[in-house]
Design a protein around this nucleic acid. Structure first.
Lengths: 244, 244
DNA sequence: TCAATTTTCATTGTCAGACATTTAAAAGTC
DNA sequence: GACTTTTAAATGTCTGACAATGAAAATTGA
């Protein structure tokens, strides 16, 4: 782990990169303790504050965790699925909100990925996954639900579908796509009529999952995508008309 | 943006969270300048070093960028697709390397997601995408290629396939899945015979893309998955035998 | 008048030193 | 042997200082 002493700026970024590379390459292994801040500042020939800034960068990526007290210090963190989920959701959400992604584009990506899980989920889902889907459908059919709660339940329904595939890597990859859509979905006002339609499509999907018919799940997801995109478009047009 | 003054530890994490939430909620918009470090330290009632640690956390997530000099400062960064790619690849790579994910699991996720792109890519791919795929196939058939170079070309081939769908959100989501597999793939030694097989399957996929036959692309990807998993398994068994 | 140059100064980057706080191990006590 | 106290190492925070940067403002020169 070395840094370039010739460029006196961005030292903390260089140090963070050096340590990050050491972790990625396996030079530093999980739960291994890094040298103390004082030792690192000596090794790199910089002040303790600079080292601290570097460590905070790594902490922001969940690459290390710190513990205070004697025998404490910075430890290489095992990146858990939960941590990775969180980061991916944050990144995906910001990516969508900052880059004027069209609703159709995001929607297409989300449903395409979800359809990839459908056959696996139909085959492997447990009774638990199916029960969760049914429960969320029931919640979605309750009157008096806010749009936000409806969307949250929608996410939970699709999460159950994805998790049914029993592949944590797939669940992780999908988490971003599904959850990041929620802010966009929250902008849609769901009428009683449209909720009824969506609940109907969810029921069809759950039924297909029930009988382990992957192709039917895909078909259901396709229709749901078409309906969602159409709904969003009509609402946008409505708003544009009222705006002018 | 407020922090809890009652908990005197992890102040920089709290401040980072406050600013991050302000960015996510839209309270701070892209390219907006944050108050200077001195002003922030006054606002939050902490020292400048604490503020700086918070800002470094945000910089590590590409949420802000800083500029030195008068009229410089920290600015809300537009999260570009490139930045998001990079973060996703790092996260996915570490997730796979630190969590003893079975090769089959990662492979299944990767090919399932890729098959999701296949119909879209068959339909929309440009001549450019197809040309890239053909070029990578040609490179893969060259003798004397290192295993690393072969894998890199493999990634490029699949990237072209994914990008052919013309959906940047999809490309972003897939980047992690495809690239994060590379270190695992690099552990496989490709014999001349297996390379020939893979090139053959790639050619079939490219041919299907050529005639815009999405279903055939899916079939080709399925076979490629089966072959890859089988190859990895036999190599692992071989190593285990030699190891004992 | 206008372009080129110099100066100014707000801001980030880095450093050094100090003290507070935490925490597990070590030492002491009953 | 179990409990309490002490110790020391480590992170967390604060203060104050100086260096480096870079755009705006002021100055200069034709």
């Amino acid at each position: 782990m070395k840094i370039d002493p010739a460029s006196p700026a961005d030292l903390s970024a260089q140090i963070a990169k050096a340590i990050r590379d050491a972790i990625i390459s396996g030079e530093l292994i999980v739960d291994e303790r890094l040298p103390s801040e004082a030792e690192l500042s000596e090794q790199f020939g910089v002040s303790r504050s600079t080292v601290r800034e570097a460590l905070k960068r790594l902490a922001a990526q969940s690459l290390i965790r710190t513990q205070r007290g004697a025998f404490g210090g910075a430890f290489v963190n095992r990146l858990s699925y939960a941590d990775a989920y969180g980061q991916q959701i944050t990144t995906s959400t910001l990516l969508l909100s900052m880059n004027e992604v069209r609703f159709e584009t995001a929607c297409e990506a989300r449903f395409a990925l979800e359809r990839a899980c459908a056959p696996l989920s139909a085959e492997r889902r447990s009774a638990d996954h199916l029960a969760t889907m049914r429960a969320e459908i029931f919640r979605q059919s309750q009157p008096g639900l806010t749009d936000e709660a409806f969307c949250a339940s929608d996410v939970a329904f699709h999460r159950a579908l994805v998790d049914g595939a029993g592949n944590p890597v797939l669940s992780y990859q999908l988490a971003g796509a599904v959850e990041a859509m929620q802010p966009l979905m929250n902008m849609i006002t769901f009428s009683a009529r449209s909720r009824e339609q969506i609940v109907g499509l969810h029921t069809r999907i759950a039924d297909a999952i029930h009988v382990r018919d992957g192709a039917a799940v895909c078909t259901g997801l396709c229709e749901l995508e078409r309906y969602t995109v159409g709904l969003a478009r009509s609402i946008m047009e409505e708003r544009a008309r009222r705006g002018t």
